[in-house]
Amino acid sequence: METSSFHDLREIRQMMEKSSRFISLSGWSGVAAGCSALAGAFVANGYIKSYYKHAYGSSAACPACLKQDLLVVAALVFISALALAFIFTYARSKKEGVAIWGPSARKLMWSTMLPMVVGGIFILRLMDLQYYSLVAACSLLFYGLALINGSKYTVGEIRFLGYGQVLTGLFCLWFPTNGLVGWAFGFGILHIVYGFTMWWKYERK
Protein backbone atom coordinates (compact mmCIF):
# COMPACT_ATOMS: atom_id res chain seq x y z
CA MET A 1 0.00 0.00 0.00
CA GLU A 2 2.84 2.33 0.90
CA THR A 3 4.61 1.88 -2.41
CA SER A 4 1.32 2.28 -4.26
CA SER A 5 0.47 5.69 -2.79
CA PHE A 6 4.03 6.88 -3.39
CA HIS A 7 3.75 5.65 -6.92
CA ASP A 8 0.41 7.41 -7.39
CA LEU A 9 1.80 10.71 -6.15
CA ARG A 10 4.81 10.41 -8.42
CA GLU A 11 2.55 9.65 -11.36
CA ILE A 12 0.38 12.69 -10.59
CA ARG A 13 3.40 14.96 -10.35
CA GLN A 14 4.88 13.66 -13.58
CA MET A 15 1.64 14.10 -15.46
CA MET A 16 1.20 17.65 -14.16
CA GLU A 17 4.74 18.53 -15.25
CA LYS A 18 4.50 16.76 -18.57
CA SER A 19 1.17 18.30 -19.52
CA SER A 20 1.95 21.87 -18.50
CA ARG A 21 5.63 22.29 -19.30
CA PHE A 22 7.59 21.55 -22.42
CA ILE A 23 10.49 19.71 -20.86
CA SER A 24 12.16 18.19 -23.91
CA LEU A 25 14.01 21.39 -24.68
CA SER A 26 17.54 20.06 -25.07
CA GLY A 27 20.63 21.67 -23.56
CA TRP A 28 22.41 21.05 -26.85
CA SER A 29 19.91 23.42 -28.47
CA GLY A 30 21.35 26.22 -26.33
CA VAL A 31 24.95 25.25 -27.05
CA ALA A 32 24.26 25.10 -30.81
CA ALA A 33 22.46 28.46 -30.81
CA GLY A 34 25.37 29.98 -28.88
CA CYS A 35 27.95 28.61 -31.31
CA SER A 36 26.11 29.97 -34.35
CA ALA A 37 25.84 33.37 -32.63
CA LEU A 38 29.58 33.40 -31.94
CA ALA A 39 30.35 32.43 -35.54
CA GLY A 40 27.99 35.19 -36.72
CA ALA A 41 29.60 37.78 -34.45
CA PHE A 42 33.02 36.76 -35.79
CA VAL A 43 31.96 37.19 -39.42
CA ALA A 44 30.17 40.48 -38.67
CA ASN A 45 33.25 41.79 -36.89
CA GLY A 46 35.30 40.98 -40.00
CA TYR A 47 32.87 42.86 -42.24
CA ILE A 48 32.87 45.93 -40.01
CA LYS A 49 36.66 45.97 -39.65
CA SER A 50 37.29 45.68 -43.37
CA TYR A 51 34.69 48.36 -44.08
CA TYR A 52 36.41 50.89 -41.84
CA LYS A 53 39.85 49.85 -43.06
CA HIS A 54 39.25 50.06 -46.80
CA ALA A 55 36.03 51.74 -47.72
CA TYR A 56 35.31 54.27 -45.00
CA GLY A 57 35.84 57.83 -46.18
CA SER A 58 36.68 56.76 -49.72
CA SER A 59 34.42 57.11 -52.72
CA ALA A 60 33.79 53.36 -52.63
CA ALA A 61 32.17 53.61 -49.20
CA CYS A 62 28.78 51.94 -49.19
CA PRO A 63 27.16 51.95 -45.77
CA ALA A 64 24.01 50.43 -47.26
CA CYS A 65 26.03 47.43 -48.46
CA LEU A 66 27.53 46.95 -45.01
CA LYS A 67 24.09 47.17 -43.49
CA GLN A 68 22.78 44.58 -45.90
CA ASP A 69 25.72 42.24 -45.29
CA LEU A 70 25.18 42.48 -41.54
CA LEU A 71 21.47 41.84 -41.91
CA VAL A 72 22.19 38.72 -43.96
CA VAL A 73 24.59 37.49 -41.26
CA ALA A 74 22.01 38.16 -38.54
CA ALA A 75 19.28 36.35 -40.48
CA LEU A 76 21.55 33.35 -41.14
CA VAL A 77 22.47 33.18 -37.46
CA PHE A 78 18.83 33.34 -36.42
CA ILE A 79 17.73 30.66 -38.89
CA SER A 80 20.60 28.27 -38.16
CA ALA A 81 20.20 28.71 -34.39
CA LEU A 82 16.48 28.00 -34.63
CA ALA A 83 17.00 24.99 -36.92
CA LEU A 84 19.74 23.50 -34.73
CA ALA A 85 17.70 24.11 -31.58
CA PHE A 86 14.77 22.33 -33.18
CA ILE A 87 16.87 19.37 -34.31
CA PHE A 88 18.36 18.72 -30.86
CA THR A 89 15.03 19.14 -29.11
CA TYR A 90 13.33 16.88 -31.64
CA ALA A 91 16.01 14.24 -31.07
CA ARG A 92 15.56 14.45 -27.31
CA SER A 93 11.79 14.15 -27.43
CA LYS A 94 12.14 11.14 -29.78
CA LYS A 95 14.57 9.50 -27.38
CA GLU A 96 12.32 10.09 -24.38
CA GLY A 97 9.17 9.15 -26.28
CA VAL A 98 7.30 12.39 -25.60
CA ALA A 99 5.26 14.19 -28.21
CA ILE A 100 6.96 17.38 -29.39
CA TRP A 101 3.76 19.22 -30.24
CA GLY A 102 1.17 19.55 -27.49
CA PRO A 103 -0.58 22.12 -25.32
CA SER A 104 2.64 22.98 -23.50
CA ALA A 105 4.67 23.43 -26.67
CA ARG A 106 1.94 25.67 -28.05
CA LYS A 107 1.90 27.83 -24.94
CA LEU A 108 5.69 28.02 -24.96
CA MET A 109 5.70 29.11 -28.60
CA TRP A 110 3.05 31.74 -28.06
CA SER A 111 4.59 33.20 -24.92
CA THR A 112 8.07 33.50 -26.46
CA MET A 113 7.18 34.32 -30.05
CA LEU A 114 4.90 37.23 -29.19
CA PRO A 115 7.56 39.38 -27.46
CA MET A 116 10.09 38.35 -30.11
CA VAL A 117 7.89 39.37 -33.03
CA VAL A 118 7.05 42.69 -31.37
CA GLY A 119 10.77 43.18 -30.69
CA GLY A 120 11.59 42.35 -34.29
CA ILE A 121 9.15 44.96 -35.59
CA PHE A 122 10.51 47.49 -33.10
CA ILE A 123 14.08 46.87 -34.26
CA LEU A 124 13.18 47.12 -37.94
CA ARG A 125 11.63 50.49 -37.21
CA LEU A 126 14.74 51.57 -35.29
CA MET A 127 16.83 50.73 -38.34
CA ASP A 128 14.41 52.65 -40.51
CA LEU A 129 15.04 55.69 -38.33
CA GLN A 130 18.79 54.92 -38.31
CA TYR A 131 19.06 54.41 -34.57
CA TYR A 132 21.59 51.65 -35.20
CA SER A 133 23.25 52.05 -31.83
CA LEU A 134 20.15 50.71 -30.08
CA VAL A 135 19.71 47.58 -32.21
CA ALA A 136 21.97 45.24 -30.21
CA ALA A 137 20.56 46.39 -26.87
CA CYS A 138 16.94 46.04 -27.99
CA SER A 139 17.40 42.59 -29.50
CA LEU A 140 18.94 41.37 -26.23
CA LEU A 141 16.24 43.02 -24.11
CA PHE A 142 13.29 41.66 -26.07
CA TYR A 143 14.85 38.20 -26.30
CA GLY A 144 15.51 38.17 -22.56
CA LEU A 145 11.94 39.19 -21.77
CA ALA A 146 10.64 36.54 -24.18
CA LEU A 147 12.61 33.87 -22.32
CA ILE A 148 11.41 35.04 -18.92
CA ASN A 149 7.85 35.03 -20.23
CA GLY A 150 8.22 31.52 -21.64
CA SER A 151 9.89 30.06 -18.55
CA LYS A 152 6.48 29.19 -17.07
CA TYR A 153 5.97 26.62 -19.80
CA THR A 154 9.35 24.92 -20.01
CA VAL A 155 12.35 24.19 -17.80
CA GLY A 156 12.06 27.01 -15.25
CA GLU A 157 15.81 27.65 -15.22
CA ILE A 158 15.55 29.30 -18.62
CA ARG A 159 14.50 32.47 -16.81
CA PHE A 160 18.08 32.86 -15.58
CA LEU A 161 19.20 32.90 -19.20
CA GLY A 162 16.51 35.57 -19.70
CA TYR A 163 17.79 37.68 -16.81
CA GLY A 164 21.30 37.41 -18.24
CA GLN A 165 20.11 38.62 -21.65
CA VAL A 166 18.22 41.55 -20.11
CA LEU A 167 21.28 42.62 -18.08
CA THR A 168 23.50 42.38 -21.15
CA GLY A 169 20.92 44.39 -23.09
CA LEU A 170 20.83 47.10 -20.43
CA PHE A 171 24.62 47.26 -20.52
CA CYS A 172 24.53 47.74 -24.30
CA LEU A 173 21.94 50.48 -23.88
CA TRP A 174 24.52 52.61 -22.06
CA PHE A 175 27.59 51.41 -23.93
CA PRO A 176 26.24 51.13 -27.46
CA THR A 177 29.68 50.98 -29.09
CA ASN A 178 30.06 47.55 -27.46
CA GLY A 179 27.00 46.26 -29.28
CA LEU A 180 28.77 43.42 -31.04
CA VAL A 181 30.57 42.37 -27.87
CA GLY A 182 27.24 42.38 -26.00
CA TRP A 183 25.70 40.34 -28.78
CA ALA A 184 28.50 37.79 -28.72
CA PHE A 185 28.28 37.58 -24.94
CA GLY A 186 24.48 37.40 -24.67
CA PHE A 187 23.57 35.28 -27.67
CA GLY A 188 26.85 33.36 -27.73
CA ILE A 189 28.47 32.80 -24.34
CA LEU A 190 25.30 32.86 -22.20
CA HIS A 191 23.57 30.34 -24.48
CA ILE A 192 26.52 27.99 -24.38
CA VAL A 193 26.85 28.22 -20.59
CA TYR A 194 23.11 27.72 -20.12
CA GLY A 195 22.88 24.86 -22.60
CA PHE A 196 25.83 23.06 -21.11
CA THR A 197 24.51 23.47 -17.57
CA MET A 198 21.10 22.10 -18.57
CA TRP A 199 22.68 19.17 -20.35
CA TRP A 200 24.86 18.46 -17.31
CA LYS A 201 21.89 18.67 -14.97
CA TYR A 202 19.19 16.78 -16.87
CA GLU A 203 20.48 14.88 -19.86
CA ARG A 204 23.88 13.51 -18.89
CA LYS A 205 23.58 9.77 -18.38
Binding site: E11, I12, M15, M16, K18, S19, S20, A99, G102, P103
Partner: peptide, 20 residues
Protein backbone atom coordinates in the same frame (compact mmCIF):
# COMPACT_ATOMS: atom_id res chain seq x y z
CA UNK B 1 -3.42 10.82 -15.37
CA UNK B 2 -6.43 12.49 -16.97
CA UNK B 3 -7.29 14.38 -13.79
CA UNK B 4 -3.67 15.46 -13.17
CA UNK B 5 -3.28 16.98 -16.60
CA UNK B 6 -6.70 18.67 -16.47
CA UNK B 7 -5.91 20.27 -13.13
CA UNK B 8 -2.97 22.22 -14.51
CA UNK B 9 -4.48 23.05 -17.91
CA UNK B 10 -7.59 25.02 -18.69
CA UNK B 11 -8.65 22.44 -21.24
CA UNK B 12 -7.06 19.50 -22.98
CA UNK B 13 -8.24 17.86 -26.18
CA UNK B 14 -8.89 14.16 -26.65
CA UNK B 15 -5.86 13.75 -28.88
CA UNK B 16 -3.58 15.60 -26.52
CA UNK B 17 -4.72 13.36 -23.66
CA UNK B 18 -4.14 10.32 -25.82
CA UNK B 19 -0.56 11.37 -26.51
CA UNK B 20 0.14 12.38 -22.93
Amino acid sequence: GIMSSLLVNEKVSFNELKEL
